[in-house]
Structure formats: structure tokens, C-alpha cells
């Protein structure tokens, strides 16, 4: 075989080591504790558009073999630590998503995730901004609501547009897809946002988009004054989706309801059911301190730091050579 060689240059390997050092120094100086949680878990996420890898544990303490899931992010385990009074924590770990490899995607990737008790999403956006300045030597990020960004680039209001207006917008922006009327409203929004707005946003400085539609809240709180939106933000820079953060939902019963909604949607999409992570729900029941958390893709940060054109240039062995 000739493809045993890494796809990185040594410069890219040096850049990764330096970046990790900078990040650890950044959090150490702020009193945020580095933690470690399992990559393999007995439960997984219910997200309709996240598919986790699983494996069989044949030596479980019971009569049957056990299914273990590779984490799609360390979120649930880290929230359990927060519920156990860990205080501010961060983690640099591998995350796995059973999805395609692409220019900015590899099914196994490195994630930086951190949680700040006492912060809301705006305070956390400030800290993400400082981290980007420290690691990329870029200027301060621009901040826009999802609605503002969508109106600016797509030309319609994402919170009030009807389905047929979203479909017309696909046409306007030359997005040709079969049977667009069969796409759910959120997929239409995501299609327009990722294909029209993302490539145009944050070309000079990073941009932070907040107040996503409540239907795309994921694990964020619904906004107290405008229930149409959630306290969720995303960071984009030079056309790359870099980070996703929440003012974290702490209400266990609302969390359970969202897991159930996901599973109903999964059933409608003929996807397998994913039981709720009961240990997470028990921890939330015990009490999650008011906090904000964010996950940031280290490989993508490295693409931006090194000026690479694809993720393979910063991964020693992407999945095609793993």
C-alpha cells in the first residue's frame, strides 16, 4: 500500500501541538479545569440529524452483551460533572459522528468543549471571542442574530416566512433540489443558511450568530423575552462552521420532552429510536447550575490557523487512510 503516509505536513503537526498548548494555557489562566470523560457511553443522543457509531461490549456485568456508543460530543458527561459541582470545566477529546467525510468533515474529529457556571450565552460569546483572538490572532467577532444574518444574506425573515416563501428563496439563490416541498421547515432554513449565508459571512472577522429559531434549540434554553428563538449561538469564520454554544437548558422535564420530540421525529423519518440518557436526566433533576457551554472543532480551528484548504491537511490520517 502506498497510502500509509500522513496527509499532513510537519508544519501542520507543529501547528496542532502549539494550538493545543495555547488553548490549555488559556483555560488554565482562567481557572477552568481540564476534565476527562468516557468516549464510550451506554446512552447516546436523540438528535434526528446525528448518527452515533456503536460497538458491542461482550464483557458487560450481566447476561447480555451491551451496546456502547461512541460519543458525538462530551456534552452529557460534562453536564453530569457540572451537576456534581465541578465548577468551570473544559475538555479536549475525540468525538465521532457516523456521517460522510468531506472537505471540512471527518467522522472522527477533535473537539474542545467548555462550560461556564454563572455565564449566559452572551458572556460565553465574549470568551469564545477572546479564545479566537488568542489562537488565530484575528480581529474581534461581529455579532448578529440569526434573523439579521438571514435577512441580510437570504433576503427573507426566517421567523415569519412561510414554507412556500422558503421554497421560492431556494429558486432565487439557484439551489436546485428535487421535491423541496417534502423538506421540513427547519431543513429548508438550514439549506438556505448553510448554502447562501454561511459562505458570505465572517470573511474578514469571525461572526457569531445567536438567537436561533426555537425549533433548532437543541439543548439551549428558549429565550425568556422572545419564545420564537433559543439562546443558542454558532460561530462562523471564512465559510467554516466553527462552534456551537448554548445558554444551557437545565430543566429536566423540558429536556425529557425534547428527547421525546426527537424520537417522534425519528419515527416519522423512519429512523431508529434512541432511549433518553437517564443518567443525564437524573443529574439535571439534581440540579444543573445556570451555565453556558460551547463546543468548538479543533481541526477546523487548525484549518483557519494554518490556512489549509481542507481538513485532510490537518489530520495525520483521515478516515480514508485510518
Amino acid at each position: 500500500m502506498t497510502d500509509w503516509t500522513p496527509t499532513t505536513s510537519h508544519t501542520a503537526r507543529l501547528a496542532r501541538a502549539a494550538l493545543l498548548k495555547t488553548i490549555r494555557h488559556f483555560f488554565d489562566a482562567r481557572g477552568v479545569l481540564e476534565v476527562d470523560t468516557p468516549l464510550l457511553s451506554q446512552a447516546t443522543v436523540t438528535d434526528v440529524h446525528l448518527d452515533a457509531f456503536n460497538t458491542t461490549f461482550a464483557h458487560a456485568a450481566g447476561p447480555d452483551a451491551q451496546t456502547l456508543w461512541l460519543q458525538t460530543s462530551p456534552e452529557y458527561a460534562m453536564k453530569r460533572l457540572l451537576c456534581a459541582d465541578s465548577g468551570p470545566i473544559y475538555q479536549i477529546c475525540k468525538a465521532f459522528r457516523h456521517e460522510g467525510a468531506g472537505r471540512f468533515h471527518n467522522p472522527e474529529f477533535t473537539m474542545l468543549e467548555w462550560y461556564r457556571p454563572g455565564f449566559d450565552h452572551h458572556a460565553l460569546m465574549d470568551e469564545v471571542d477572546e479564545l479566537l483572538v488568542a489562537t488565530l490572532q484575528c480581529d474581534r467577532a461581529e455579532r448578529l442574530t440569526y434573523q439579521q444574518a438571514f435577512q441580510r444574506h437570504v433576503g427573507i425573515d426566517p421567523l415569519t416566512a412561510r414554507q412556500d416563501q422558503l421554497i421560492t428563496a431556494l429558486d432565487t439563490h439557484q439551489i436546485d433540489i428535487d421535491a423541496p416541498d417534502t423538506l421540513p421547515r427547519d431543513s429548508l432554513l438550514q439549506l438556505l443558511f448553510s448554502m447562501v449565508a454561511e459562505p458570505l459571512m465572517g470573511q474578514q472577522t469571525p461572526v457569531m450568530i445567536y438567537s436561533f429559531p426555537a425549533s433548532q434549540a437543541a439543548l439551549a434554553r428558549v429565550n425568556q423575552t422572545d419564545p420564537r428563538v433559543a439562546d443558542r449561538f454558532e460561530v462562523y469564520f471564512k465559510g467554516i462552521e466553527l462552534a456551537n454554544g448554548f445558554f444551557e437548558l437545565g430543566d429536566a422535564s423540558e429536556q425529557r420532552q425534547r428527547f421525546n420530540q426527537d424520537n417522534q421525529q425519528r419515527e416519522a423519518n423512519q429512523l431508529p429510536q434512541r432511549p433518553a440518557d437517564e443518567r443525564l436526566l437524573s443529574a439535571l433533576d439534581h440540579g444543573l447550575p445556570d451555565c453556558a457551554g460551547v463546543a468548538l472543532g479543533i481541526d477546523r480551528l487548525l484549518i483557519l490557523a494554518t490556512g489549509a484548504s481542507a481538513i485532510d491537511e490537518v489530520l495525520n490520517f483521515p478516515v480514508s487512510r485510518a
Binding site: 460522510g100 468531506g102 468533515h105 439551489i175 436546485d176 423538506l183 462552521e241
Partner: peptide, 30 residues
Amino acid sequence: EYVKPGKGQAFNRVKIRKLISGKVLEKTFR
């Protein structure tokens, strides 16, 4: 190009050349 928002549905955006007419166009697939 593989397009997958972290929390959203995945799409493939492809640039295609029609081999008879020679037309180049973009098409999006789920």
C-alpha cells in the same frame, strides 16, 4: 461538496456537466 450543519440535515452540493448539451449546473441532493 458535503454540506452538514452541526445540528442539521446533510446535503451534497454537486457541480455537474451534462454530457450531451455540455451545460454545467449545480444540483443539491439529500
